[in-house]
Computed example of a mutant assay.
Amino acid sequence: MLKQKNKKAVIGLFLGTLLTTQLSAASSLAAETIESIQIKPRSIATRVTLDAYIEPVKAATVSAQTSGRIIKLNYDINDVVDSGSPLLEITNIEQGAQLSAANAEYAKAQAINIEAQRQLARYQTLFPQGAISQGAMDEALTNAKAAEQQLSAANAKVAQAKESVKYTVVNAPFSGVVTQRHVEEGETISPGQALYSGYSLSQMRAVTHIPQRYVAAVKRQPQFRLILATGEQIESDELTLFSFIDPNTHSYKVRINLPQNQTDVIPGSLIKAQFVSDNRTAIYIPKSSIMTMNALDTVYLKQDNNWVLTQVRVGSSDNGQIEILAGLSTADVIAKDAYQALQTLNNHH
């Protein structure tokens, strides 16, 4: 037991000495052959990460515009539809009868108008000759104007009846996916009743809420980084920041548009939204400059013509660079490759 304790004490003493004692190069040549870099702090953005969710930019519920019985349903939940595709069909017997009646009324009004205009033309020819009284002339003019108005009203009824017939086939307002079907085949519907709900797949947006203290930062730099569930990152500066506070969350709502046809996002899914709140100065060094020994991160720091193994505290990594939170200062010189430096020093020891 005593030997084991002595052994641990020797190992601990060795590690402590390794981190605090200078490792002198056997020659100045050894120190010069080690490739080094000088510490230069850089300004990096401080990002705030918020929870966000995906919603479609274009979503709608299609409602009935006429009454009737459903005779055919062409789509169901989760089906993808094209713009203008017929979603369902309604009986059109009543609407067809109304169209026939409107056409008949229009034909009658047209005949009356033709006769009234002809009579007015005859009276206008005879009136200068004194064959027609002023009263008859005024009556003919009134009848002609009334016939024109009746013809116009009949034409409007025909147009209305035609639209009513068109309403018996309900078309998709845009391309998208069906999320809910509110009716069944054979069901009788009335105007205003919901039929289908769905959303467009072509344009999505992220929605999040920003605490009041960060609103100024978002206005100063209106750009977000969206991190999807797959890990994909999307940058977007197309956003809408609401100008009023949500009374429930006491924060500002913001909508961030995603690129067109972003097919790998699903409405309702949760993502992360990041924005720059401030900038700070940080030190980053290459990963190769760090040597990990017994869970301790160290670098070779150059002091005069000697190399010192110095412990550092590391932070986040970014594109092959690791942030140094403690242990190094501006203008310090360190070995670019710590393991290569260790080998070089051992070869010249």
Rank of each mutant, 00 (worst) to 15 (best):
P259S: 03
V10D: 12
L19Y: 10
D237G: 06
I271M: 03
L328W: 06
R42M: 10
K272V: 04
S152P: 00
A229Y: 01
V218P: 08
T188R: 07
S27M: 04
S85E: 15
T281S: 05
N155T: 10
P286K: 03
A136T: 12
I11H: 08
I285R: 02
N306M: 01
D246G: 00
F242P: 03
Y196E: 07
D76E: 06
E105C: 00
Q38W: 01
D264Q: 13
V62S: 00
I70F: 03
T292C: 04
Q119G: 09
S236Q: 09
V183S: 09
Q95C: 00
S251R: 02
L296D: 07
S133K: 06
I322W: 02
L325T: 02
T298D: 00
M291S: 08
T188F: 08
Y53K: 11
A59I: 00
T61W: 03
D337Q: 06
Q38L: 03
A161K: 12
R118D: 08
R47Q: 14
G84S: 05
S67E: 11
G268S: 08
I266Y: 09
Q22S: 13
N279S: 13
K72D: 10
T310E: 05
T249Y: 08
L73I: 13
A9M: 09
P41L: 00
E35D: 14
N261T: 05
H250R: 14
G12M: 06
N143K: 12
T310Q: 14
S175A: 15
S24I: 04
I283P: 07
A206Q: 00
S175Y: 06
D237C: 03
K219Q: 15
I11P: 01
Y106W: 03
T344M: 09
M291C: 00
P128A: 08
D76T: 10
A153M: 15
A109H: 05
I39Q: 07
N103E: 13
S175H: 08
T125I: 12
T292V: 14
H348E: 15
E89T: 15
W307L: 04
A172H: 11
K8N: 14
R280N: 09
I71V: 13
D82E: 15
D297A: 09
A116S: 14
I322N: 01
A341Y: 10
Q124Y: 00
E105S: 12
M1H: 11
K272Q: 12
L328K: 02
E187N: 10
A109I: 08
Y53E: 13
G231Q: 04
V276W: 00
I54G: 03
D318W: 05
E323I: 04
S175G: 14
S202Q: 13
T20V: 12
E94T: 08
L301D: 04
R122P: 01
Q262E: 09
I283M: 10
S316K: 13
Y214D: 13
T20P: 06
Q65E: 15
R313N: 14
R225K: 11
N78E: 15
G192H: 05
A116Y: 07
P86C: 08
L258D: 08
V312G: 05
D337P: 05
Y214V: 00
K272L: 11
L328T: 02
A326V: 01
S277P: 02
K302D: 09
Y199T: 02
Y339F: 13
G12N: 10
Q343I: 13
S133E: 10
I285Y: 05
G84R: 05
